[in-house]
């Protein structure tokens, strides 16, 4: 069953500039779905349309069987939304914020405590502290509790891990998996490409357009060429030379290695390539599997 369905949704803020350009995709019931793209790609606009906070110019969208325009009241009751910007009441305490959101949705903290227990447990010692005085990590946990307290069918999380360090990000994703196991459909947006593999299905988005929607492994399998990782002592010079070599189609820095593809996918042996590049040092070259970021760069180029 489909929990969320978008059909050719478009939205522009300024004349001629499409924030969202004919976006269509579906999210299955109980799925952990990632919307992945850089700042300004349209992720927040899309979430605001789906949570009925913004009207699309054209197209239609269904969330939990409800139309985002006609049935907006039903949607507001059945979804949880955590905006990218901290939007709780700064001058209410932790407990007051949670109580407020529970009351707004005609429920109590006790009724759905089971759902937020694991997260709330970590901020409970600060129950009497005003939300404005919490650290970034604790604000995020409180916001997630408030978005969950009415036991929503669908949870929208807009960039929950932006500016969060690698260890905390890992913990956050583990928490999302456990929420998913409780049957909640989760849509999460992120600019970090390495988080793609933690989602069941992803949509890559750039400049308001969807570049691809599929499982992370299927997107990687669709990468059009054999990818190679190369390395030498002077990486900066190597990249420069690779870019000026006509036989090389693409060359991008990827941490310790540069990732390259060949024109028409015709590989050149390592020794021959070293000669072509006029390298006076050893060249290391191996086959490598593309990452989602490789795919994103390739799809950006193609579009």
């Amino acid at each position: 069953m489909k929990e969320v369905r978008l059909d050719s949704i478009s939205k522009s803020y300024l004349k001629g500039q499409m924030a969202i350009d004919h976006v269509s995709f579906e999210v299955n019931c109980g799925e952990l779905f990632g919307l992945i793209g850089p700042d300004g790609a349209g992720k927040t606009t899309l979430f605001r349309i789906l949570t009925t906070l913004l009207l699309a110019d054209s197209g239609s969208a269904i969330v939990s069987g409800n139309d985002v325009v006609k049935d907006y009241k039903n949607i507001r009751k059945s979804v949880g939304y955590m905006p990218g910007k901290f939007s709780l009441y700064q001058d209410l305490t932790v407990r007051e914020n949670l109580h407020f959101f529970a009351t707004m949705f005609n429920t109590t903290i006790e009724e759905n405590y089971e759902l937020v227990k694991e997260i709330y447990f970590q901020i409970e010692p600060f129950n009497q502290r005003r939300a404005g005085n919490l650290s970034g990590g604790m604000k995020q946990k409180l916001a997630l509790c408030c978005a969950l307290i009415h036991n929503p069918k669908v949870l929208f999380l807009d960039e929950p891990t932006t500016g969060v360090d690698a260890v905390s990000r890992k913990e956050f994703w583990e928490m999302l998996k456990r929420l998913k196991d409780k049957g909640i459909t989760i849509l999460v947006s992120t600019p970090y490409m390495d988080e793609a593999s933690l989602c069941e299905k992803i949509a890559l988005i750039q400049e308001g357009k969807i570049l691809s929607v599929d499982t992370p492994s299927a997107i990687i399998a669709q990468y059009p060429k054999q990818l190679y990782a190369v390395k030498s002592h002077q990486m900066g010079k190597l990249l420069d030379k690779l870019r000026r070599t006509p036989e090389i189609d693409s060359a991008n820095a990827f941490g310790e290695y540069h990732h390259i593809t060949f024109v028409e996918d015709k590989p050149i042996e390592k020794e021959q390539l070293a000669q072509l590049l006029q390298l006076n040092e050893e060249l290391i070259m191996t086959n490598t599997t593309p990452t989602i970021e490789d795919c994103f760069i390739d799809l950006m180029k193609a579009s």
Binding site: P38, D39, M193, F296, I297
Partner: peptide, 8 residues
């Protein structure tokens, strides 16, 4: 480079 696209 937070939030910047992979090419940029």
């Amino acid at each position: 480079t937070g939030g910047v696209d992979p090419v940029i």
